[in-house]
Design a protein around this nucleic acid. Structure first.
Lengths: 118, 118
DNA sequence: CGCGTATATGCCCATCAAGGCATATACTTG
DNA sequence: CAAGTATATGCCTTGATGGGCATATACGCG
């Protein structure tokens, strides 16, 4: 069984989750909307189900898949300390730009601070 | 070149990043602290470098690797809408537990509502 | 310049994952 | 019960990955 990290590493699986974020959805519609064959979708859904990222509800012949976001908490938890790091960096950049606010901008978008010699 | 998603899908690479979060570190120390062979570490570092998740600074024979958290922003951005979903769920659970606070719990964990016939 | 240290790289192998295709299964309806 | 629809599963091929091991490369030092 794959970890949430590995499950979400696969682009098509992310796309499936993105669709399911809008609400439950049968396999056929996923297959159609994503341009993937039905077996491919079913296999990805199997992986997602094993990782508890989706669950299924049967509706006649169809199966409605529904998102279960909880396992993504693990991913978010791993990410959290890094989030602080890059926001520190962005804050620093912002402060820098504010300090430099009297400089005429060299371009429309703020360019990074002058490259320091390393 | 791997996406940030694929790069962090590998557990040892996450461990490397976790160590680098403490500050720059030479390959040998990573190898020692993680219990991985030096070639293995070097190969993972290569992948991390290609994904711009680390950069290198040369120090005599050693190479000091340093974390660059920016590419993780992509991961965080993908995650954001899901974060809202699960916090909604957790809020709902919390409200539920508060409301139910006077009920003697049937079990330690709240059980799901009675299964409906479909 | 030769040696030791630190790191990168190349080759090999085993594993695995993703998709194509065919087919099995399950449910519904006539 | 037969046929159709919706989905799951099995087999196969192909490509990629991680790690082990040996070796190449780079740097500093005596």
């Amino acid at each position: 069984m794959l970890s949430a990290f590995e499950v979400v590493a696969e682009p098509n699986r992310r796309r499936i989750l993105d669709v399911l974020r809008e609400g439950r959805c049968p396999v056929g519609e996923l297959s159609h909307r994503l341009g993937l064959t039905q077996p491919t979708v079913s296999k990805h859904l199997r992986v997602l189900k094993d990782a508890r990222l989706v669950d299924v509800e049967q509706d006649a012949q169809r199966r409605l898949y529904r998102l279960r976001p909880e396992p993504l908490v693990e991913l978010d938890a791993w990410l959290a300390p890094y989030r602080e790091l890059w926001s520190q960096r962005l804050d620093a950049l912002e402060r820098h730009l504010t300090t430099m606010a009297d400089d005429p901008p060299a371009s429309a978008r703020p360019s990074p601070p002058p490259r320091r010699k390393r």
